[in-house]
Computed example of a mutant assay.
Amino acid sequence: MSGTAGRVADSTGNWVDTAAPDWLKPYLRLARLDRPIGSWLLLMPCWWSAGLAAIAAGRPYPDPWHCLLFFIGAFAMRGAGCTWNDIVDRDLDAKVERTRSRPIPSGQVSVRLALAFLVLQALVGLAVLLQFNAFTILMGFLSLTTVAIYPFLKRVTHWPQIGLGLAFSWGALMGGPAVFGRLDPAFIVLYAGSIAWVIAYDTIYAHQDREDDALIGIKSTAILFDERTRPMLAAFYSAAVVLIGIAGWLAGAGLVFALGLAAFAAHLAWQVRRLDIGDPALCLRLFKSNRDAGLILFGGMILDAALR
């Protein structure tokens, strides 16, 4: 197998292509380690929750051990979620230009081996989860329902992005319980704000496949919104900013958090202004830029905790 065989169309040169052993590449691609942006986006609500917990607890910084566990867990569980998604979507992926070269539809990995790899990644995630208190462990197990359901939503609704939001934002519900052993209102509101954020950025991502998806019957907010995408993104991003702001207020955050939130909002406004739904490459760049937006917000939380 050549060095780039099976590389998905929106994956450019990366360490998997250039450095990983050939036998391992299909599995790394199943886990999306050639495209780690999704793991970063899954991690952001976890770190936001840890930052908000530090503010609420009056601590000078988020718990470093929790942040490390969230990092490892986000990469492991995103890989497991993508592997599950590829198993479920293998027939659909074969019909879409961007995804037909994924390891399962291209024949590089059998469904049986993909399931074994899924279990291995899930065990890593379980090992991470068991480092937390009992309430947080329970919250982690509850998240599996959203992960299991998400791949099927695109077949029945134009709003699968809500399902992704429920799954990818779950980390917002983890940082508070990890510190306090309970789920306070601030973290529920943070979760709602993160869901709005995910719906918006995944709509941008879905515009890469809009035409192929429409042909094979896959539904998405990109297809639903179409030419109304820009105002709909503005609405969801605005909702995200307002809800996250309320979460910060409930946690007792101060001016520095507000400044970080304003910078986060400015980044989201820039995305809406720059968007061209007819330019897939630009859509991908804007989608990826949400990692930077998330880090800006997290930085504001860290500084607010430190200065208070």
Rank of each mutant, 00 (worst) to 15 (best):
V147G: 07
D226S: 15
D304K: 00
D63W: 10
W159M: 05
L303W: 06
G140A: 06
H158R: 05
W47N: 07
E227G: 09
A200G: 05
V256D: 07
F168C: 05
D17K: 03
Y201K: 07
F225L: 08
W23Y: 14
M232V: 04
R78E: 01
I188A: 14
S11I: 08
G107H: 14
I149Q: 07
A54I: 05
M139E: 10
P231L: 03
T12R: 04
L68C: 11
D202P: 08
A53M: 08
I55V: 15
T83M: 12
V256T: 14
I199M: 15
S289M: 03
P185Q: 02
W48P: 10
M232C: 04
S110W: 08
I216C: 09
V88I: 15
R59V: 02
S49H: 11
S143H: 05
F168T: 08
D93M: 13
S289N: 09
D226Y: 10
A172C: 01
R155D: 01
I162P: 00
A305I: 09
G252S: 03
S106F: 02
T18Y: 04
L303P: 01
N14R: 10
A76V: 06
A239H: 02
G245M: 12
G245K: 11
I72N: 01
Y61A: 15
R210P: 10
A20T: 02
R274N: 00
A253G: 07
L173A: 06
S169G: 13
G107N: 12
A222S: 07
G300A: 04
A74W: 02
A127R: 00
A19E: 06
D34C: 03
L120D: 06
L123D: 01
L261I: 02
F70Y: 08
I149N: 06
A116F: 11
L115Q: 13
I246K: 01
D10Q: 14
W65F: 03
R78W: 04
V179A: 15
D17Y: 02
D226H: 15
R98Y: 12
F187M: 09
Y150H: 14
L118A: 11
P21R: 09
L275I: 13
W270Y: 14
G248M: 08
L307Q: 00
A235L: 12
D89I: 12
G193K: 04
F117T: 14
F75T: 02
R100S: 13
G38C: 07
V198R: 04
A172L: 03
M174E: 03
A269G: 11
K154Q: 03
V272N: 01
A240C: 13
A253K: 01
R32E: 12
